[in-house]
Amino acid sequence: MLAVLALRAGQTVYYNELADELWPGEFLKNPRNAIQAQATRIRKTIEGCIQRTEESAALRPVYNGYILDISRDAVDTNRFLDLTMRGNNDLALEPARALRSLRQGLQLWRGPALLNTRTGEQCRSAAAFLDERRMLANEDLMSAHLLLGDNRKAVAELQTLVAAYPSRERLCELLMLALYRTGRQAEAIHVFHRIRQRLDAELGVVPGRELARLYQKILIQDSSLDSATAVLSRPEVCSGV
């Protein structure tokens, strides 16, 4: 319940929405009483954590629902989205500043998005969105390292990310580029063949155009691979929740 209210901080969340999220597919004789009991527990928890007494009424009952009446930036998901969008916007012209914003945003994570809240549609959709934005932020962070010439650090971090997400083509692209820039052309080629085999075996598809183009450029040692353009050739991410 707190997750749903926090995702929509400052907005009314109605009883029927909360019931659908908390007990999807179930029939409760009196869901409003159950929700009110949860609200009491949440309010006590908030009052035990707050720094300012005027926030004691942060969870307010309104007609047919509740509002979590807090500022937008009091919610970690919003801070994460703002910081990583700022990093994405700064990436091309201010990679050092982008790296700082992306690091700050990613440091807000403590585990999977909305852990243990994914039974309802709102939390499940938000979690999928946030997990994808986390991946994009990691890709932007690795791009920032490459733009700053920190290729060896990028290799080390990308190897960990690719091991965790072996079918993520953008991560493999960045790892191939980082390996190539550190004089490890053969390893970069091996990364391509490894993901090509995995995509064929698991999904029956071939590598995407960008990955295949990068592979060809590595084979011929194309001079453009040392440019910023080689790092930035990717679609922009969307903003907002």
Rank of each mutant, 00 (worst) to 15 (best):
C123D: 01
L161Y: 13
Y215V: 00
I46K: 09
R32S: 02
R52G: 00
I218W: 10
E47P: 00
I46A: 09
N88G: 07
N89M: 02
A6M: 11
A178Y: 09
W23V: 05
V241D: 13
D150P: 00
A39C: 11
S227H: 01
Q216Y: 05
L219E: 15
A19C: 05
V206W: 02
A57D: 10
M1N: 03
L141A: 08
K217R: 12
V237N: 06
V231M: 04
A6G: 04
E202F: 01
L115E: 14
G10P: 02
N78T: 01
G240P: 01
M135Y: 04
G65E: 06
L225Y: 02
R168K: 10
C172Y: 03
P61Y: 13
A163Q: 07
L219K: 15
C238D: 06
R43P: 00
P235K: 15
L93S: 11
A144M: 06
L106H: 04
N33L: 05
L68T: 06
A74N: 14
L174F: 06
R110K: 09
V4K: 10
L141H: 12
A126M: 15
A156K: 06
G10V: 11
S223H: 02
R86D: 09
L114S: 12
S239Y: 04
G48A: 12
G204I: 07
G183M: 11
T84I: 08
E202M: 03
A154F: 10
R8I: 00
L2A: 12
L68W: 01
V191N: 05
R110M: 01
L18Q: 01
I46M: 09
I70E: 07
R124S: 14
N16D: 15
I42L: 07
R124F: 09
M1D: 06
P95R: 00
I50S: 12
P207D: 14
A230D: 08
V75Y: 04
G25H: 13
A126V: 13
L106G: 02
G25Q: 14
M142N: 09
R118H: 08
L141Q: 12
L114I: 10
L203W: 10
A92G: 07
L28C: 03
F192D: 09
L203Y: 14
A230I: 05
L22S: 12
L174C: 02
G208N: 04
A164T: 11
Q122I: 14
G183Y: 08
L232A: 03
E139V: 01
D150T: 00
S239R: 12
V62G: 08
L93P: 00
V75P: 00
L148K: 12
R133M: 11
N33P: 00
L214I: 03
L148H: 03
E121V: 08
A164C: 03
L28H: 15
